[in-house]
Design a binder for these strands. Structure first.
Lengths: 219, 219
DNA sequence: CGCGTTTCTGAGTATTGAATCAGAAAAACT
DNA sequence: AGTTTTTCTGATTCAATACTCAGAAACGCG
Protein backbone atom coordinates (compact mmCIF):
# COMPACT_ATOMS: atom_id res chain seq x y z
CA UNK A 1 0.00 0.00 0.00
CA UNK A 2 2.76 2.45 0.87
CA UNK A 3 5.01 3.86 -1.79
CA UNK A 4 8.39 2.92 -0.37
CA UNK A 5 10.50 4.81 -2.87
CA UNK A 6 13.21 5.94 -0.46
CA UNK A 7 13.52 4.67 3.09
CA UNK A 8 10.20 6.16 4.31
CA UNK A 9 11.96 8.66 6.60
CA UNK A 10 8.96 8.98 8.88
CA UNK A 11 6.39 11.55 7.82
CA UNK A 12 3.94 13.48 9.91
CA UNK A 13 2.32 15.82 7.43
CA UNK A 14 2.90 13.25 4.71
CA UNK A 15 0.06 11.34 6.29
CA UNK A 16 -2.44 14.05 5.43
CA UNK A 17 -0.91 14.50 1.99
CA UNK A 18 -1.53 10.82 1.35
CA UNK A 19 -5.11 11.09 2.54
CA UNK A 20 -5.70 14.05 0.27
CA UNK A 21 -4.18 12.19 -2.65
CA UNK A 22 -6.42 9.22 -1.97
CA UNK A 23 -9.59 11.29 -1.91
CA UNK A 24 -8.47 13.17 -4.98
CA UNK A 25 -7.77 9.98 -6.89
CA UNK A 26 -11.18 8.60 -6.11
CA UNK A 27 -13.01 11.74 -7.12
CA UNK A 28 -10.92 12.52 -10.19
CA UNK A 29 -11.42 9.02 -11.51
CA UNK A 30 -15.16 9.07 -10.94
CA UNK A 31 -15.97 12.55 -12.11
CA UNK A 32 -13.12 13.87 -14.20
CA UNK A 33 -10.88 16.82 -13.59
CA UNK A 34 -13.27 19.76 -13.84
CA UNK A 35 -16.18 18.17 -12.07
CA UNK A 36 -14.04 17.87 -8.95
CA UNK A 37 -13.61 20.91 -6.70
CA UNK A 38 -10.77 21.60 -4.33
CA UNK A 39 -13.33 22.45 -1.66
CA UNK A 40 -14.99 19.09 -2.13
CA UNK A 41 -11.74 17.19 -1.77
CA UNK A 42 -10.83 19.23 1.29
CA UNK A 43 -14.15 18.48 2.93
CA UNK A 44 -13.98 14.73 2.37
CA UNK A 45 -10.35 14.65 3.48
CA UNK A 46 -11.29 16.61 6.56
CA UNK A 47 -8.90 19.50 6.08
CA UNK A 48 -9.15 23.11 5.06
CA UNK A 49 -9.02 24.07 1.44
CA UNK A 50 -5.81 25.98 1.96
CA UNK A 51 -4.14 22.82 3.22
CA UNK A 52 -4.47 21.35 -0.23
CA UNK A 53 -2.43 24.21 -1.61
CA UNK A 54 0.14 23.77 1.10
CA UNK A 55 0.85 20.19 0.04
CA UNK A 56 0.23 20.56 -3.69
CA UNK A 57 1.03 23.62 -5.73
CA UNK A 58 -2.21 23.65 -7.70
CA UNK A 59 -5.07 21.44 -8.81
CA UNK A 60 -3.14 20.17 -11.77
CA UNK A 61 -0.25 18.95 -9.68
CA UNK A 62 -2.60 17.30 -7.25
CA UNK A 63 -4.08 15.44 -10.19
CA UNK A 64 -0.67 14.35 -11.42
CA UNK A 65 0.37 13.29 -7.96
CA UNK A 66 -2.77 11.19 -7.59
CA UNK A 67 -2.16 9.56 -10.96
CA UNK A 68 1.44 8.74 -10.10
CA UNK A 69 0.13 6.69 -7.19
CA UNK A 70 -1.56 4.54 -9.82
CA UNK A 71 1.59 4.20 -11.88
CA UNK A 72 3.16 2.40 -8.93
CA UNK A 73 0.34 -0.13 -9.20
CA UNK A 74 1.10 -0.72 -12.86
CA UNK A 75 4.80 -1.03 -12.18
CA UNK A 76 4.02 -3.77 -9.69
CA UNK A 77 1.85 -5.47 -12.29
CA UNK A 78 4.70 -5.45 -14.80
CA UNK A 79 7.02 -6.90 -12.20
CA UNK A 80 4.67 -9.77 -11.41
CA UNK A 81 4.17 -10.59 -15.06
CA UNK A 82 7.85 -10.49 -15.91
CA UNK A 83 8.45 -13.80 -14.16
CA UNK A 84 6.28 -15.57 -16.78
CA UNK A 85 8.26 -14.07 -19.63
CA UNK A 86 9.09 -17.48 -21.11
CA UNK A 87 5.61 -18.99 -21.09
CA UNK A 88 3.65 -19.20 -24.36
CA UNK A 89 1.98 -15.96 -25.32
CA UNK A 90 -1.54 -17.28 -24.86
CA UNK A 91 -0.75 -18.45 -21.34
CA UNK A 92 0.81 -15.10 -20.52
CA UNK A 93 -2.23 -13.37 -21.88
CA UNK A 94 -4.54 -15.40 -19.71
CA UNK A 95 -2.37 -14.67 -16.72
CA UNK A 96 -2.24 -10.98 -17.57
CA UNK A 97 -6.00 -10.82 -17.85
CA UNK A 98 -6.51 -12.49 -14.50
CA UNK A 99 -4.03 -10.13 -12.87
CA UNK A 100 -5.69 -7.22 -14.64
CA UNK A 101 -9.00 -8.16 -13.06
CA UNK A 102 -7.53 -8.43 -9.58
CA UNK A 103 -5.84 -5.08 -9.90
CA UNK A 104 -8.95 -3.47 -11.32
CA UNK A 105 -11.01 -4.59 -8.36
CA UNK A 106 -8.34 -3.45 -5.94
CA UNK A 107 -7.81 -0.09 -7.64
CA UNK A 108 -11.02 0.77 -9.46
CA UNK A 109 -9.78 4.27 -10.09
CA UNK A 110 -7.38 2.96 -12.70
CA UNK A 111 -9.98 1.66 -15.11
CA UNK A 112 -12.22 4.64 -14.55
CA UNK A 113 -9.50 7.13 -15.37
CA UNK A 114 -8.62 5.31 -18.58
CA UNK A 115 -12.25 5.28 -19.67
CA UNK A 116 -12.85 8.87 -18.69
CA UNK A 117 -9.83 10.51 -20.25
CA UNK A 118 -9.69 8.03 -23.11
CA UNK A 119 -13.04 9.36 -24.26
CA UNK A 120 -12.24 13.02 -23.72
CA UNK A 121 -8.82 13.16 -25.33
CA UNK A 122 -6.54 16.13 -24.82
CA UNK A 123 -3.47 16.89 -22.79
CA UNK A 124 -4.37 14.77 -19.82
CA UNK A 125 -4.79 11.71 -22.01
CA UNK A 126 -1.37 12.34 -23.52
CA UNK A 127 0.13 12.55 -20.08
CA UNK A 128 -1.58 9.38 -18.91
CA UNK A 129 -0.57 7.53 -22.03
CA UNK A 130 3.06 8.45 -21.44
CA UNK A 131 3.24 8.00 -17.69
CA UNK A 132 0.59 5.42 -16.88
CA UNK A 133 -0.68 2.90 -19.33
CA UNK A 134 1.20 3.43 -22.58
CA UNK A 135 3.75 0.69 -22.08
CA UNK A 136 1.20 -1.65 -20.58
CA UNK A 137 -1.01 -1.43 -23.63
CA UNK A 138 1.88 -1.91 -25.99
CA UNK A 139 3.06 -4.94 -24.07
CA UNK A 140 -0.41 -6.45 -24.13
CA UNK A 141 -0.66 -5.83 -27.84
CA UNK A 142 2.65 -7.60 -28.33
CA UNK A 143 1.31 -10.60 -26.44
CA UNK A 144 -1.79 -10.67 -28.61
CA UNK A 145 0.30 -10.48 -31.75
CA UNK A 146 2.44 -13.38 -30.65
CA UNK A 147 -0.56 -15.44 -29.62
CA UNK A 148 -2.06 -14.90 -33.04
CA UNK A 149 1.20 -15.83 -34.72
CA UNK A 150 1.25 -19.01 -32.62
CA UNK A 151 -2.20 -19.83 -33.96
CA UNK A 152 -3.70 -19.73 -30.49
CA UNK A 153 -5.78 -16.61 -30.99
CA UNK A 154 -8.20 -15.79 -33.77
CA UNK A 155 -6.59 -13.24 -36.11
CA UNK A 156 -8.37 -10.05 -35.15
CA UNK A 157 -6.68 -6.65 -35.05
CA UNK A 158 -4.44 -6.78 -31.96
CA UNK A 159 -5.20 -3.25 -30.83
CA UNK A 160 -8.93 -3.92 -31.10
CA UNK A 161 -8.57 -7.12 -29.12
CA UNK A 162 -6.64 -5.42 -26.34
CA UNK A 163 -9.11 -2.58 -25.97
CA UNK A 164 -12.18 -4.77 -26.27
CA UNK A 165 -10.94 -7.23 -23.66
CA UNK A 166 -9.99 -4.45 -21.29
CA UNK A 167 -13.19 -2.46 -21.59
CA UNK A 168 -15.30 -5.58 -21.40
CA UNK A 169 -13.43 -6.75 -18.35
CA UNK A 170 -13.74 -3.54 -16.36
CA UNK A 171 -17.26 -2.72 -17.51
CA UNK A 172 -19.05 -3.95 -14.44
CA UNK A 173 -16.37 -2.46 -12.21
CA UNK A 174 -16.57 0.99 -13.74
CA UNK A 175 -20.32 1.02 -14.05
CA UNK A 176 -21.12 0.04 -10.51
CA UNK A 177 -23.42 3.05 -10.00
CA UNK A 178 -25.32 2.12 -13.15
CA UNK A 179 -25.67 -1.49 -12.07
CA UNK A 180 -27.10 -0.32 -8.78
CA UNK A 181 -29.67 2.10 -10.14
CA UNK A 182 -30.60 0.15 -13.25
CA UNK A 183 -30.44 -3.46 -12.11
CA UNK A 184 -30.45 -3.09 -8.34
CA UNK A 185 -27.29 -5.18 -8.18
CA UNK A 186 -24.02 -4.58 -6.39
CA UNK A 187 -21.28 -6.29 -8.38
CA UNK A 188 -18.66 -5.90 -5.68
CA UNK A 189 -19.18 -9.00 -3.56
CA UNK A 190 -16.79 -11.95 -3.33
CA UNK A 191 -19.21 -14.25 -5.19
CA UNK A 192 -19.86 -11.67 -7.85
CA UNK A 193 -16.17 -11.07 -8.35
CA UNK A 194 -15.50 -14.76 -8.77
CA UNK A 195 -18.29 -15.11 -11.29
CA UNK A 196 -17.02 -12.09 -13.13
CA UNK A 197 -13.55 -13.56 -13.43
CA UNK A 198 -15.04 -16.69 -14.88
CA UNK A 199 -17.14 -14.66 -17.27
CA UNK A 200 -14.14 -12.76 -18.58
CA UNK A 201 -11.69 -15.65 -18.80
CA UNK A 202 -13.99 -18.47 -19.90
CA UNK A 203 -16.44 -16.24 -21.72
CA UNK A 204 -14.73 -13.36 -23.44
CA UNK A 205 -11.22 -14.69 -23.81
CA UNK A 206 -12.40 -18.17 -24.72
CA UNK A 207 -14.40 -16.71 -27.59
CA UNK A 208 -11.24 -15.23 -29.04
CA UNK A 209 -9.05 -18.32 -28.72
CA UNK A 210 -8.85 -21.19 -31.15
CA UNK A 211 -10.19 -24.51 -30.00
CA UNK A 212 -6.91 -26.26 -29.20
CA UNK A 213 -5.86 -23.32 -27.11
CA UNK A 214 -8.99 -23.31 -24.97
CA UNK A 215 -8.52 -26.96 -24.15
CA UNK A 216 -5.14 -26.08 -22.68
CA UNK A 217 -6.73 -23.70 -20.20
CA UNK A 218 -9.48 -26.00 -18.92
CA UNK A 219 -9.36 -27.40 -15.48
CA UNK B 1 -32.64 12.65 -37.94
CA UNK B 2 -35.43 15.09 -37.25
CA UNK B 3 -37.63 14.69 -34.23
CA UNK B 4 -41.00 14.50 -35.92
CA UNK B 5 -43.12 14.69 -32.79
CA UNK B 6 -45.87 16.87 -34.27
CA UNK B 7 -46.16 17.64 -37.97
CA UNK B 8 -42.87 19.57 -38.24
CA UNK B 9 -44.70 22.89 -38.85
CA UNK B 10 -41.74 24.46 -40.63
CA UNK B 11 -39.16 26.04 -38.37
CA UNK B 12 -36.74 28.85 -39.02
CA UNK B 13 -35.09 29.30 -35.65
CA UNK B 14 -35.60 25.64 -34.94
CA UNK B 15 -32.73 25.06 -37.29
CA UNK B 16 -30.29 26.81 -35.01
CA UNK B 17 -31.80 25.13 -31.97
CA UNK B 18 -31.11 21.78 -33.57
CA UNK B 19 -27.54 22.77 -34.37
CA UNK B 20 -26.99 23.85 -30.78
CA UNK B 21 -28.45 20.61 -29.52
CA UNK B 22 -26.15 18.65 -31.78
CA UNK B 23 -23.02 20.43 -30.60
CA UNK B 24 -24.14 20.15 -27.01
CA UNK B 25 -24.78 16.42 -27.32
CA UNK B 26 -21.34 15.83 -28.75
CA UNK B 27 -19.57 17.82 -26.08
CA UNK B 28 -21.65 16.62 -23.15
CA UNK B 29 -21.07 13.02 -24.11
CA UNK B 30 -17.33 13.48 -24.52
CA UNK B 31 -16.61 15.65 -21.54
CA UNK B 32 -19.47 15.43 -19.09
CA UNK B 33 -21.76 18.13 -17.87
CA UNK B 34 -19.44 20.41 -15.92
CA UNK B 35 -16.51 20.24 -18.29
CA UNK B 36 -18.67 21.77 -21.00
CA UNK B 37 -19.18 25.54 -21.05
CA UNK B 38 -22.04 27.42 -22.60
CA UNK B 39 -19.54 29.73 -24.26
CA UNK B 40 -17.80 26.75 -25.82
CA UNK B 41 -21.01 25.36 -27.24
CA UNK B 42 -22.00 28.76 -28.55
CA UNK B 43 -18.67 29.20 -30.30
CA UNK B 44 -18.75 25.83 -32.03
CA UNK B 45 -22.39 26.32 -33.00
CA UNK B 46 -21.53 29.74 -34.38
CA UNK B 47 -23.97 31.74 -32.31
CA UNK B 48 -23.80 34.10 -29.39
CA UNK B 49 -23.91 32.75 -25.89
CA UNK B 50 -27.17 34.53 -25.21
CA UNK B 51 -28.78 32.66 -28.08
CA UNK B 52 -28.37 29.45 -26.14
CA UNK B 53 -30.47 30.92 -23.37
CA UNK B 54 -33.07 32.10 -25.82
CA UNK B 55 -33.68 28.55 -27.04
CA UNK B 56 -33.01 26.70 -23.81
CA UNK B 57 -33.85 27.98 -20.36
CA UNK B 58 -30.60 26.90 -18.73
CA UNK B 59 -27.69 24.51 -19.09
CA UNK B 60 -29.59 21.70 -17.45
CA UNK B 61 -32.47 21.90 -19.88
CA UNK B 62 -30.09 22.03 -22.80
CA UNK B 63 -28.56 18.83 -21.49
CA UNK B 64 -31.94 17.16 -21.15
CA UNK B 65 -32.98 18.29 -24.59
CA UNK B 66 -29.79 16.87 -26.09
CA UNK B 67 -30.35 13.58 -24.30
CA UNK B 68 -33.93 13.34 -25.52
CA UNK B 69 -32.61 13.40 -29.06
CA UNK B 70 -30.85 10.16 -28.19
CA UNK B 71 -33.96 8.62 -26.73
CA UNK B 72 -35.52 8.86 -30.19
CA UNK B 73 -32.67 6.70 -31.42
CA UNK B 74 -33.38 4.07 -28.81
CA UNK B 75 -37.09 4.13 -29.56
CA UNK B 76 -36.27 3.39 -33.19
CA UNK B 77 -34.03 0.53 -32.07
CA UNK B 78 -36.87 -0.97 -30.02
CA UNK B 79 -39.19 -0.68 -32.99
CA UNK B 80 -36.80 -2.50 -35.29
CA UNK B 81 -36.25 -5.29 -32.80
CA UNK B 82 -39.93 -5.76 -32.07
CA UNK B 83 -40.48 -7.45 -35.43
CA UNK B 84 -38.27 -10.37 -34.34
CA UNK B 85 -40.25 -10.86 -31.16
CA UNK B 86 -41.00 -14.52 -31.96
CA UNK B 87 -37.48 -15.66 -32.85
CA UNK B 88 -35.48 -17.70 -30.32
CA UNK B 89 -33.89 -15.59 -27.62
CA UNK B 90 -30.34 -16.32 -28.73
CA UNK B 91 -31.13 -15.23 -32.27
CA UNK B 92 -32.76 -12.06 -31.00
CA UNK B 93 -29.74 -11.40 -28.86
CA UNK B 94 -27.40 -11.73 -31.79
CA UNK B 95 -29.61 -9.44 -33.81
CA UNK B 96 -29.82 -6.95 -30.97
CA UNK B 97 -26.05 -6.89 -30.62
CA UNK B 98 -25.55 -6.28 -34.31
CA UNK B 99 -28.07 -3.48 -34.26
CA UNK B 100 -26.47 -2.12 -31.12
CA UNK B 101 -23.14 -1.88 -32.94
CA UNK B 102 -24.62 -0.10 -35.93
CA UNK B 103 -26.37 2.41 -33.72
CA UNK B 104 -23.28 2.95 -31.60
CA UNK B 105 -21.22 3.81 -34.66
CA UNK B 106 -23.94 6.09 -35.96
CA UNK B 107 -24.51 7.81 -32.61
CA UNK B 108 -21.30 7.50 -30.61
CA UNK B 109 -22.61 9.96 -28.07
CA UNK B 110 -24.97 7.31 -26.74
CA UNK B 111 -22.32 4.90 -25.52
CA UNK B 112 -20.16 7.69 -24.24
CA UNK B 113 -22.91 9.16 -22.12
CA UNK B 114 -23.72 5.81 -20.59
CA UNK B 115 -20.10 5.21 -19.70
CA UNK B 116 -19.59 8.71 -18.39
CA UNK B 117 -22.62 9.06 -16.18
CA UNK B 118 -22.70 5.38 -15.33
CA UNK B 119 -19.38 5.85 -13.60
CA UNK B 120 -20.25 9.10 -11.90
CA UNK B 121 -23.66 8.22 -10.53
CA UNK B 122 -26.00 10.88 -9.20
CA UNK B 123 -29.10 12.63 -10.45
CA UNK B 124 -28.18 12.65 -14.08
CA UNK B 125 -27.68 8.91 -14.09
CA UNK B 126 -31.10 8.46 -12.52
CA UNK B 127 -32.63 10.61 -15.21
CA UNK B 128 -30.86 8.76 -17.99
CA UNK B 129 -31.82 5.42 -16.55
CA UNK B 130 -35.46 6.45 -16.50
CA UNK B 131 -35.66 8.27 -19.81
CA UNK B 132 -32.97 6.72 -21.96
CA UNK B 133 -31.63 3.24 -21.45
CA UNK B 134 -33.49 1.74 -18.51
CA UNK B 135 -36.01 -0.22 -20.52
CA UNK B 136 -33.43 -1.20 -23.10
CA UNK B 137 -31.20 -2.77 -20.48
CA UNK B 138 -34.06 -4.59 -18.86
CA UNK B 139 -35.20 -5.95 -22.20
CA UNK B 140 -31.69 -7.14 -23.01
CA UNK B 141 -31.43 -8.80 -19.63
CA UNK B 142 -34.70 -10.58 -20.28
CA UNK B 143 -33.32 -11.89 -23.57
CA UNK B 144 -30.19 -13.16 -21.85
CA UNK B 145 -32.28 -14.90 -19.19
CA UNK B 146 -34.38 -16.64 -21.79
CA UNK B 147 -31.33 -17.64 -23.81
CA UNK B 148 -29.81 -19.18 -20.72
CA UNK B 149 -33.06 -20.98 -19.92
CA UNK B 150 -33.05 -22.31 -23.47
CA UNK B 151 -29.59 -23.72 -22.86
CA UNK B 152 -28.09 -21.56 -25.60
CA UNK B 153 -26.06 -19.29 -23.35
CA UNK B 154 -23.65 -20.19 -20.59
CA UNK B 155 -25.28 -19.53 -17.22
CA UNK B 156 -23.58 -16.34 -16.13
CA UNK B 157 -25.33 -13.56 -14.23
CA UNK B 158 -27.61 -11.90 -16.82
CA UNK B 159 -26.90 -8.37 -15.68
CA UNK B 160 -23.18 -8.99 -15.82
CA UNK B 161 -23.48 -10.43 -19.30
CA UNK B 162 -25.46 -7.48 -20.57
CA UNK B 163 -23.05 -4.91 -19.20
CA UNK B 164 -19.93 -6.79 -20.23
CA UNK B 165 -21.15 -7.28 -23.78
CA UNK B 166 -22.18 -3.66 -24.09
CA UNK B 167 -19.01 -2.16 -22.67
CA UNK B 168 -16.83 -4.54 -24.63
CA UNK B 169 -18.70 -3.74 -27.80
CA UNK B 170 -18.47 0.04 -27.53
CA UNK B 171 -14.96 0.09 -26.10
CA UNK B 172 -13.16 0.92 -29.29
CA UNK B 173 -15.88 3.39 -30.24
CA UNK B 174 -15.74 5.30 -26.98
CA UNK B 175 -11.98 5.21 -26.69
CA UNK B 176 -11.20 6.50 -30.13
CA UNK B 177 -8.96 9.29 -28.76
CA UNK B 178 -7.02 6.73 -26.75
CA UNK B 179 -6.61 4.44 -29.74
CA UNK B 180 -5.22 7.34 -31.71
CA UNK B 181 -2.68 8.55 -29.17
CA UNK B 182 -1.70 5.16 -27.79
CA UNK B 183 -1.79 2.91 -30.84
CA UNK B 184 -1.84 5.41 -33.67
CA UNK B 185 -4.94 3.76 -35.05
CA UNK B 186 -8.24 5.22 -36.17
CA UNK B 187 -10.94 2.61 -35.59
CA UNK B 188 -13.57 4.47 -37.56
CA UNK B 189 -13.00 3.20 -41.09
CA UNK B 190 -15.33 0.89 -43.01
CA UNK B 191 -12.86 -2.03 -42.83
CA UNK B 192 -12.24 -1.48 -39.16
CA UNK B 193 -15.94 -1.36 -38.43
CA UNK B 194 -16.53 -4.61 -40.25
CA UNK B 195 -13.72 -6.33 -38.38
CA UNK B 196 -15.03 -4.98 -35.13
CA UNK B 197 -18.48 -6.40 -35.77
CA UNK B 198 -16.91 -9.77 -36.42
CA UNK B 199 -14.84 -9.48 -33.26
CA UNK B 200 -17.87 -8.75 -31.13
CA UNK B 201 -20.26 -11.28 -32.64
CA UNK B 202 -17.90 -14.16 -33.38
CA UNK B 203 -15.48 -13.37 -30.59
CA UNK B 204 -17.23 -12.07 -27.51
CA UNK B 205 -20.72 -13.42 -28.02
CA UNK B 206 -19.46 -16.76 -29.32
CA UNK B 207 -17.48 -17.24 -26.13
CA UNK B 208 -20.66 -16.94 -24.09
CA UNK B 209 -22.79 -19.29 -26.17
CA UNK B 210 -22.91 -23.04 -25.87
CA UNK B 211 -21.52 -25.09 -28.72
CA UNK B 212 -24.78 -26.05 -30.42
CA UNK B 213 -25.80 -22.42 -30.45
CA UNK B 214 -22.60 -21.17 -32.07
CA UNK B 215 -22.97 -23.71 -34.84
CA UNK B 216 -26.26 -22.02 -35.69
CA UNK B 217 -24.47 -18.72 -36.24
CA UNK B 218 -21.68 -19.97 -38.49
CA UNK B 219 -21.63 -19.24 -42.14
C1' DC C 1 -43.37 49.30 -47.75
C1' DG C 2 -45.14 49.13 -42.85
C1' DC C 3 -45.63 46.68 -38.84
C1' DG C 4 -45.64 42.88 -35.77
C1' DT C 5 -43.23 38.66 -34.45
C1' DT C 6 -39.42 35.93 -34.07
C1' DT C 7 -34.69 35.48 -33.52
C1' DC C 8 -30.47 37.05 -32.03
C1' DT C 9 -26.74 39.91 -29.65
C1' DG C 10 -23.61 43.07 -26.63
C1' DA C 11 -23.10 44.53 -22.33
C1' DG C 12 -23.68 43.52 -18.21
C1' DT C 13 -24.52 40.85 -13.02
C1' DA C 14 -23.95 37.31 -9.62
C1' DT C 15 -21.97 33.16 -8.27
C1' DT C 16 -18.61 29.79 -7.97
C1' DG C 17 -14.21 28.00 -7.47
C1' DA C 18 -8.95 28.17 -7.70
C1' DA C 19 -5.22 30.36 -5.68
C1' DT C 20 -2.87 33.57 -2.04
C1' DC C 21 -1.10 35.07 2.33
C1' DA C 22 -0.47 36.46 7.03
C1' DG C 23 -0.51 34.37 10.94
C1' DA C 24 -2.23 30.62 14.35
C1' DA C 25 -1.54 25.93 15.93
C1' DA C 26 1.14 21.93 16.31
C1' DA C 27 5.35 19.42 16.20
C1' DA C 28 10.28 18.80 16.66
C1' DC C 29 14.38 19.59 18.74
C1' DT C 30 17.84 21.27 22.31
C1' DA D 1 10.73 25.31 28.97
C1' DG D 2 12.21 27.97 24.77
C1' DT D 3 12.81 28.28 20.06
C1' DT D 4 12.71 26.91 15.47
C1' DT D 5 10.40 24.39 11.83
C1' DT D 6 6.53 22.26 9.99
C1' DT D 7 1.78 22.06 9.28
C1' DC D 8 -2.55 24.09 8.96
C1' DT D 9 -6.42 27.71 8.57
C1' DG D 10 -9.61 32.07 7.93
C1' DA D 11 -10.15 35.77 5.20
C1' DT D 12 -9.52 37.51 0.80
C1' DT D 13 -8.48 38.16 -4.22
C1' DC D 14 -9.07 37.14 -8.92
C1' DA D 15 -10.71 34.69 -13.00
C1' DA D 16 -14.21 31.99 -15.11
C1' DT D 17 -18.88 30.94 -16.04
C1' DA D 18 -23.97 30.66 -15.98
C1' DC D 19 -27.51 33.64 -16.59
C1' DT D 20 -30.23 38.36 -17.60
C1' DC D 21 -32.02 42.11 -20.24
C1' DA D 22 -32.76 46.01 -23.26
C1' DG D 23 -32.67 46.52 -27.67
C1' DA D 24 -30.95 45.45 -32.58
C1' DA D 25 -31.48 42.60 -36.66
C1' DA D 26 -33.96 39.42 -39.46
C1' DC D 27 -38.13 37.54 -40.96
C1' DG D 28 -43.14 37.03 -42.27
C1' DC D 29 -47.13 38.89 -44.08
C1' DG D 30 -50.74 42.38 -45.34
Amino acid sequence: MKSAATVTPLGKGDRTAARIREVALDQFSRLGFERVTMAGIAQVAGVSQATLHYHFADKDQLWRSAMLALSAVIAEEERLLAVARDAPAIAQLRMALRLFLQISWRHPALGRIIALEGMAGGERLEWLSQHLFGTRNRRLMGLVERAIADGDLKPFSPAQVVITLQTGAVGIINLRPLLRTNFGIDPDTPESRAEHEELVLDGLLAGLTNRRATRKGER
